[in-house]
Design a protein around this nucleic acid. Structure first.
Length: 209
DNA sequence: TGCCAGGCCCTCTTTAGGGCCTT
């Protein structure tokens, strides 16, 4: 339970329902001591990458042409992430691709997803925005490399999520780091955050205002 | 030509609309 998997997809578009497929995935295993293992791979999506997305990510059609197929990479990623809770920045996006691609392979099993973006909105509402790059700069998190590449963004999200756990523990005076982790994973909305704070014995949000 | 998804959340709200965030 104290280990979770941070994932990040690069894709050909915003929605699998519109035919978008993944071009790269990174999975980073994290515990309370930090990042302990990494998996990263380009994959051949079988569809063309639009020019604007190639410019955004730096991943070209030529780069993925020689890469293994989506099925092979997703099998490896699924095995690597095992049954750990999954964390992503704007998790609704990555969760869609994760579930759709694993369902294609009959590998899908329901997993808990936590969202570092929703949590950072709750914990740091004063920041100008909650894009991953802005959070890395504002919170002085480690530089993990080129943004919009899967491993760099997954590692940045891992550092962000560790930072959020510490902020939760401090702000709500939680008894333990594991309570902060449970809270971080379970609290996606304001009401869930409040309920989890009460569940784990911390001070109510309004008491900390 | 210009738009395209979708869940969360704020507000000039709740019988709704629009910004944010991901690629």
């Amino acid at each position: 339970m104290n280990t979770y998997a941070v994932i990040d997809f690069e894709t050909t578009g915003l929605s699998p329902a519109q035919g978008a497929r993944p071009t790269e995935i990174a999975v980073v295993l994290v515990d309370q001591q930090g990042i302990k293992d990494r998996f990263q791979s380009l994959m051949n999506p079988g569809v063309s990458i639009p020019a604007d997305i190639q410019a955004l990510t730096g991943i070209s059609n030529a780069m993925v042409k020689k890469a293994p197929g989506v099925a092979q990479v997703m099998q490896q990623a699924c095995k690597f992430a095992a049954n750990h809770p999954i964390v992503a920045h704007n998790a609704a996006f990555d969760q869609k691709f994760w579930e759709v691609e694993l369902q294609r392979l009959n590998l899908y099993q329901q997993q808990k997803f936590a969202c570092s973006m929703l949590l950072s909105r709750r914990i740091f509402p004063e920041l100008p925005n909650h894009r991953l790059g802005t959070l890395v700069q504002s919170l002085k998190l480690p530089n993990t490399g080129r943004s919009h590449r899967a491993l760099a963004d997954a590692e940045a999200t891992a550092h962000l999520f560790l930072h959020l756990q510490q902020a939760l523990r401090s702000r709500f005076q939680l008894a333990s780091v594991s309570h902060a982790l449970l809270l971080a994973i379970q609290a996606k909305s304001r009401s869930q955050l409040e309920a989890c704070v009460l569940k784990y014995g911390g001070l109510r949000a309004e008491q900390m205002a």
